[in-house]
């Protein structure tokens, strides 16, 4: 495990030295969060009952005023971005973690050291996971503060920021990020172009979009049981994906077939 930390520290050091990549990767989520808060604040001042006309309301919005509903819908929509961020933030970092080593020919001396594949991949994955989780949680905190500050009534804040949403964010979001990273690592060890590896994480958008539409339609309710069930399912997939990443990381193939 100590070698995984050594790899993690080196990756983080390299990332810090790549100002452009760092800004592009870690600067966008706060910008999106600020945008979400601004749109949420403006939605509270939407005129009349434009928002609710002809739309069947989910149970948690019934009884709210027109402005409250407008804000709540916008807030709920944007609340899902915190499940999309963990898919996108690590994709650049994780894909360069392996493909970058292959491209720069640094992998052979690295594999010549007494480091196990699992230690290497844990270190690489941590370097993408830690900033992702920290940044997503920081942005989520900012979002919560914005909602609390600019919700037209406390009822709106209560509809957007639910204990279920917090639980899903705390428990499921890191697992979702981990699955994405493991998928990228699997693909990274088989391709030479980091962009190819980045694309694979896009498949995780599908379940996240399902979460968005399910929540808006009232079919899905983000509560503690949902978060725990999600943790079980995602935890299983994360374990399988990490195991696969380790098993499929062919040291020999990478050294002898990649040019």
């Amino acid at each position: 495990m100590s070698k995984a930390l050594v790899v993690f520290q080196k990756e983080w050091l390299e990332l810090r030295l790549q100002r452009g990549l760092l800004l592009a990767t870690l600067g966008v989520p706060p910008a999106i969060t600020v945008f979400a808060i601004v749109v949420f604040a403006l939605a509270g001042h939407a005129p009349g009952d434009v928002v609710t006309r002809g739309i069947p309301l989910p149970p948690d919005l019934i009884g709210l005023s027109s402005n409250e509903i407008a804000q709540a819908i916008v807030g709920k929509q944007f609340s899902v971005i915190f499940f999309l961020l963990p898919v996108f933030i690590p994709s650049v970092i994780a894909s360069y973690a392996i493909v970058g080593e292959k491209r720069d020919r640094t992998l052979e001396p690295l594999l010549a050291t007494p480091i196990r594949t699992s230690q290497l991949l844990v270190g690489k994955s941590l370097s993408a996971l830690v900033p992702t989780v920290v940044l997503t949680l920081a942005c989520a905190l900012l979002f919560v503060a914005g909602i609390a500050l600019w919700a037209v009534t406390p009822r709106v804040a209560g509809v957007v920021i639910t204990p279920g949403w917090v639980a899903v964010l705390a428990v499921d979001m890191p697992l979702l990020a981990l699955i994405g990273i493991a998928l990228i690592v699997i693909v990274s060890s088989r391709v030479n172009d980091p962009r190819t590896a980045q694309q694979v994480s896009a498949v995780l958008i599908v379940p996240v979009l399902g979460l968005l539409f399910g929540q808006l339609s009232g079919v899905l309710v983000l509560n503690l049981p949902f978060a725990l069930l999600g943790a079980l399912v995602l935890g299983f997939f994360a374990f399988v994906a990490l195991r696969l990443a380790t098993d499929l990381f062919g040291r020999e193939a990478i050294l002898t077939r990649w040019r």
């Binding site: 390299e14 030295l17 790549q18 010549a112």
Partner: peptide, 15 residues
């Protein structure tokens, strides 16, 4: 127990 100088130096250029 061994040290290896690979065909390409393979160094981290930013470090």
């Amino acid at each position: 127990s061994v040290g290896i100088l690979t065909e390409s130096p393979g160094l981290y250029e930013r470090l």
